[in-house]
Computed example of a mutant assay.
Amino acid sequence: MICARCDKPILPGQGTTLALDSPSAGGADVTVHAELCNMPGHQTAPDLTGSQLFAEQLRAAADRVSRYAP
């Protein structure tokens, strides 16, 4: 079996099955490691668009220049 949390194999005796309830559909049973495993990182926000990247670069350049330089 494959762990639903970390996507790594589960050896016999290492897994536990959890029932997930869903308000809009039937529930599902997932198998995870009995000991808490590390969940891989995942993106939670979209990447910046070209104009947003350009604005960030302009702000960074403005921050590097001192207003009080002679």
Rank of each mutant, 00 (worst) to 15 (best):
A61S: 10
C6Y: 05
G15T: 11
G26I: 04
M39H: 03
S22I: 09
P9K: 07
A25N: 12
D29F: 00
D7H: 10
A61P: 06
P23N: 06
P23I: 14
G13R: 05
L11I: 15
P46W: 01
I10T: 06
A19C: 01
L36S: 07
R5M: 14
C37L: 04
A45R: 14
V32S: 00
P40Y: 03
L48E: 07
P70E: 10
G26A: 12
G26W: 01
T31W: 00
A19G: 00
I10Y: 02
A69W: 05
T49H: 03
L58H: 01
A28F: 10
A62K: 09
N38L: 11
L18D: 05
G13H: 07
D47C: 01
A28G: 01
R59E: 15
G27T: 09
C3T: 14
T16M: 11
L11S: 15
R67Y: 01
G41P: 00
C6F: 05
P40S: 06
G41K: 07
Y68H: 11
L36I: 15
G26Y: 02
P40Q: 00
N38S: 09
F54I: 14
P70A: 09
D47R: 04
R64M: 06
Q43S: 12
V32C: 04
D29S: 11
H33D: 02
S24Y: 03
G27L: 08
S51L: 04
T44H: 05
M1K: 12
Q14M: 10
N38I: 11
V30S: 03
A55K: 14
F54N: 08
A28W: 00
C37S: 02
